[in-house]
Amino acid sequence: MLLIRCPHCAAERPEVEFVYAGEAHISRPRDPAVLTDEQWKNHLFIRSNPRGTHFERWRHIHGCGRFFNAVRDTVTDKFAMTYKAGLPRPSEAEIREARS
């Protein structure tokens, strides 16, 4: 069972309090109506699925209830960092520093 740091509670909490919520930094288009079918399909269904660093969303559902973002390595399962939703995607340097 993983330990996950909730950026709102500012504490590491057991994984059972959380749910995974898909890839992060995919925002809903302001006006979906102007998108082509192809663009809409890409928005809806196409995800990066990387080996290694993955930006993803979690929700502290049985805690403060907040959705937040995380950087996790899909090979080791280890979290590098978590941050509040709405904040920009961390840079490689920031992730490296968080890992060390």
């Binding site: 749910v19 919520a21 925002s27 809903r28 969303r57 929700r59 559902i61 209830g65 907040r66 959705f67 939703a85 709405g86």
Partner: peptide
């Protein structure tokens, strides 16, 4: 409820 919270909090 979870879907609604998701839209409300993040979109």
């Amino acid at each position: 409820l979870a879907t609604m919270e998701d839209y409300l909090q993040t979109e």
